[in-house]
């Protein structure tokens, strides 16, 4: 309340950091433009392609600073505000610089019950950062995520909007971090359904090599 009396009005926060992408680098190449044109042609209006183009910009520049959002808006001839609204809606678009590897640790209901927070806190302790922060070497970012749709293999995490790591344990996290430090991204992995457990050695799929068998999830220590 005293804050309010002292500052009844807060100025609009300056969310315009110094540009990260140099002006000369802020463009889409001819190939990228061709790619964008094919995406645009799939939709009745150019607006439809905004998510793909934002994704392209994120892959190109690493994340989406305001100038990249502006570039996407100009490319698709859309209002800057609208593109910015889309970019902030999806947590997978990074609005600020993140580590090379981003751990989205699921702490939604199922994972929470099965130890999602245990895993999150273990990661935080191991990397000596808080959720939402990036390690000093710029390698890892840890953040909490809402349900990533893999409740069957809870607790789990996702690495940089990419592969999932299922049925997390502390050992798995240790191994994951060691592997990532050497630059090895985990492979895509599919988890079978519980009803498949007793058939074909637990797996009816053809891509056996990249699947794991369903196991009954553990129960969180904090819940025990």
């Amino acid at each position: 309340m005293t804050d309010f009396i002292k500052n009844p009005v807060v100025p609009l926060p300056d969310r315009m950091p110094d540009p990260v992408v140099a002006k000369d680098d802020l463009f889409f190449t001819e190939d990228e433009k061709k790619q964008i044109a094919t995406w645009v042609s799939r939709y009745p209006t150019a607006d439809g392609a905004v998510m793909r183009v934002l994704w392209l910009a994120q892959e190109k520049f690493g994340f989406l600073p305001p100038e990249a959002v502006q570039l996407v808006a100009d490319t698709l001839d859309m209002p800057y505000a609208k593109v910015y609204g889309v970019a902030t809606f999806y947590t997978q678009y990074f609005k600020e610089k993140k580590g090379t590897y981003v751990f989205d640790v699921c702490t939604c209901f199922s994972c929470q019950m099965c130890g999602g927070y245990d895993m999150l806190h273990y990661l935080e302790d191991k990397l000596s950062i808080h959720a939402g922060d990036t390690t000093e070497d710029g390698l890892f970012t840890v953040q909490e995520a809402e349900c990533l749709g893999a409740c069957g293999s809870a607790p789990m995490l996702q690495v940089t909007n990419g592969p999932y790591v299922h049925n997390l344990t502390r050992e798995k996290i240790d191994a994951l971090i060691d592997a990532l430090r050497e630059g090895n991204m985990p492979q895509f992995e599919s988890v079978t359904l519980p009803q498949d457990e007793n058939e074909l050695g637990g797996n009816r799929r053809t891509d056996v090599a990249r699947t794991t068998t369903y196991t009954t999830p553990p129960v969180s220590e904090t819940v025990k």
């Binding site: 609009l12 315009m16 305001p66 800057y80 609208k82 609204g85 902030t88």
Partner: peptide, 22 residues
Amino acid sequence: SHQLTIIERGVRNYPMTPPGVV
């Protein structure tokens, strides 16, 4: 003028200008 948009999502969303716009 396209100066306002809804940012964030779910329970956290509210209208805001994009960065650098007043």
